[in-house]
Design a protein around this nucleic acid. Structure first.
Length: 270
DNA sequence: CTAAGGACCTGTCGGC
DNA sequence: TGCCGACAGGTCCTTA
């Protein structure tokens, strides 16, 4: 469920409850996530002041006055603000309680998510080698074109590679390639600069619009739990096998690229 | 170095 | 109705 826009939507939803608060406790009910939740978190985190909550790729970074908490939602993770007295549901693995009395509750049925502690996030192996943020300046067609040199992989795999650009997942890779009129199987090194410019623009547009809509799915931060993400309605190709292409009315095709379902229009994408 | 495939997990859905 | 396989929004790691 969580791609970059969903992570960003989560960040915005929970930040007001956590920033400038002091952690009073943490409860870890299940340590077996993608990587075991390290025991030093239990020692380090309580008492720390959360300066700010930021996002890098699909990671959430809780910058404290003495170290940074890294959180990744994996495939099935979600976050909400809860009353810690409320009994945890199935797969509610972690509570982080702050001095307002509220808790951040991390649920993750598939346990592909992670929760880690680092004194220096810039040097952390999971973050160190990430490519630029797609919404930051510095990500553009010229950059993509340069990076694609000598890369024979399918362009879809190329843009889903976090070392190339951070945080483009399956849904938005499909959507951006449709938007740019580029066939997902085209070799990355066979795309001209102008078309890479279109692609970079499409990636930014799709992500921007999805963030604005509150993501594609996901959502229930506050107890009163919020709306679902509305971007699902705006998806042009993802999950729409055999439906009419919104541009040319040809039935949309599906293929598997890099073991991921890929939706596209044979007519409009070259 | 690149590219491809496996691995990690549980929940849900469609078909028989 | 019940069971079983296929599949799911991520990404690291191993192998060739």
């Amino acid at each position: 469920m969580p791609e970059l826009p969903e992570v960003e939507t989560s960040r915005r939803g929970i930040a007001p409850w956590l920033e400038k608060r002091r952690v009073t406790g943490i409860t870890v009910r299940e340590r077996r996530l993608r990587w075991p939740v390290p025991p030093d978190i239990d020692r380090e985190l309580p008492g720390k002041f959360i300066r700010r909550l930021r996002r890098r790729a699909k990671y959430l970074l809780f910058d404290t006055d003495g170290g940074t908490l890294l959180l990744h939602l994996g495939m099935s993770g979600s976050l909400r603000i809860a009353d810690p007295a409320e009994p945890p549901g199935a797969h509610d693995h972690v509570d982080i309680v702050v001095d307002s009395g509220k808790a951040l509750r991390f649920r993750d049925p598939r346990r592909f998510g992670s929760l880690l502690w680092t004194p220096d996030p810039d040097a952390h192996p999971l973050l160190r080698d990430l490519g630029p943020e797609p919404l930051d300046p510095g990500f553009d067609g010229a950059y993509l074109h340069a990076r694609a040199r000598g890369r024979r992989v399918a362009v879809k795999s190329f843009i889903m590679n976090a070392a190339v650009v951070a945080g483009v997942g399956n849904i938005y890779a499909n959507e951006a390639l449709f938007e740019a009129g580029i066939h997902p199987k085209r070799r990355a090194d066979r795309i001209s600069l102008p078309r890479m410019e279109r692609l970079a623009q499409a990636i930014r547009d799709v992500l921007d619009r999805a963030i604005e809509a509150g993501g594609t799915t996901l959502n229930d931060f506050h107890g009163a739990d919020g709306e679902p993400g509305y971007f699902a309605q705006e998806l042009k190709v993802y999950g729409r096998e055999d439906e009419a292409c919104p541009r040319c009315r040809e039935p949309l095709a599906v293929a598997v690229i890099g073991q991921r379902s890929t939706f596209y229009c044979r007519q409009c994408q070259r």
